[in-house]
Simulated scan of single mutants.
Amino acid sequence: MIRVPIQDLESDIIKDVEVFLPSDKLNVYEESYFSWAASPLIAKINSNNISGGILKAWHHVPVFNEIETHAEPEMFYFISGIALMLFIDLVDEIPNLDTAQIVRIRPGTQLIISKGKGHFIPVAESEEPVHIIVVSPRVDAPKIQLSTSIGAL
């Protein structure tokens, strides 16, 4: 098993992943009974068949045996709970284990994961489940087995 450190997510630490952190400044529009804070991240998606859903993940030991990738970008909005998520580069559709990163993602974070970027469903760091809104085109999510497990230090 390969062990990698868990890093707190910052704006530029994951190649091919755009990050908006909850501490980043939003322009907020307000009226008497609502406010609207649009994210500055924009995904360029070729498909017009877009789907969304809520992903809920529970706590377990952060060991990953597979990844998935997509032919289009995916948007993740982390709503609650603290997540641990694996990212890895692919070279000719083979995971490059030397690029494996496990990052800690806090509520309020938005990610756009570029097409072709290896990643997997996050796990909750504690007993509090993670809730994520995911928006993506309707595309396949091929899973790729890792040659060895990747776990957190």
Rank of each mutant, 00 (worst) to 15 (best):
F87T: 05
I82L: 01
Y77S: 13
A83K: 07
L84T: 03
A100F: 04
D98Q: 14
D89I: 14
L84N: 04
I79E: 08
R104P: 02
T109R: 01
A100L: 10
T109F: 02
N96V: 11
G81K: 02
D89E: 14
A83F: 09
P107G: 01
I79G: 06
P107F: 00
L97P: 06
P95E: 02
I79F: 12
R106A: 09
D89G: 07
R104M: 01
F78G: 07
I79D: 05
N96T: 08
R104K: 02
R104I: 00
I102Q: 05
G108A: 04
I88A: 09
Q101I: 10
Y77D: 11
L97N: 06
V91Q: 10
L97H: 10
D98C: 12
Y77T: 10
F78K: 05
I82T: 04
I105K: 00
I102P: 06
L84P: 05
F87E: 06
Y77R: 08
I82H: 01
V91C: 13
L97Y: 08
Q101A: 13
G81F: 03
Q101W: 10
S80K: 04
F87H: 04
I79W: 06
M85R: 07
L86A: 02
I79A: 10
V91E: 13
D98Y: 09
E93H: 11
S80L: 03
S80A: 03
S80H: 03
G108L: 06
L84E: 05
R106G: 10
M85L: 07
P107S: 01
I105H: 00
D89V: 07
I105T: 00
V91D: 12
D98V: 14
L90W: 11
N96P: 10
G81E: 05
E93V: 11
F87S: 05
E93F: 12
P107A: 00
L90T: 14
V103M: 03
D89P: 09
